[in-house]
């Protein structure tokens, strides 16, 4: 009985841990020649400052929409900003036509499909969701 209770508590705890508590990783298409990126390169790319891979090739950031907990966790860990502040920042770029915003996907499945079909795509995921078609180039909180 005691064993069952402990198991139940552990199980409940695991269920209570939100998906974004898992380590997030930045991924590219497996055919992209880039192997590794550093923190400032990832910031530049997702903050629209310099949307380029380290080898000079064009990058296409892809992400889930504003409702995503993963997106919220990603920007919090990457630059320490809430989504409201990220949106304020992007409104400067977007409404002046300075930069193209990341391509939004409605769900994880479509994001994975997009990533698998475009070698210039770059996105972020919980580590457990990385598929064989993707390659990890940066780990948050590494």
């Amino acid at each position: 009985m005691k064993k069952l209770l402990i198991t139940s508590i552990i199980f409940a705890f695991v269920l209570a841990v939100p998906a974004h508590a898992e380590q997030l990783v930045v991924v590219v298409n497996k055919n992209n020649p880039i192997e590794k990126m550093n923190h400032s390169e990832v910031i530049d790319l997702f903050m629209g400052k310099y949307v380029v891979f380290p080898d000079g090739n064009k990058a296409t950031p892809v992400e889930l929409n504003n409702k995503s907990e993963i997106k919220k966790a990603f920007y919090s860990e990457l630059v320490g900003m809430s989504l409201a502040r990220i949106n304020a920042y992007w409104s400067r770029l977007k409404f002046t036509g300075r930069a193209r915003a990341a391509i939004e996907q409605p769900n994880q499945e479509s994001l994975l499909t997009y990533m698998s079909n475009d070698t210039s795509a770059i996105s972020y995921l919980p580590r457990s969701q990385v598929t064989a078609n993707l390659k990890v180039v940066y780990e948050l909180n590494e």
Binding site: S91, R92, T96, G97, R98
Partner: peptide
């Protein structure tokens, strides 16, 4: 870019009407 753009005279002139931005 070619066409009608926002003036880049000072730091905020391009997005001064986007109040959410600052």
């Amino acid at each position: 870019r070619i066409g009608r753009t926002a003036p880049d005279l000072f730091l905020l002139t391009e997005f001064r009407d986007v109040d959410f931005a600052y």
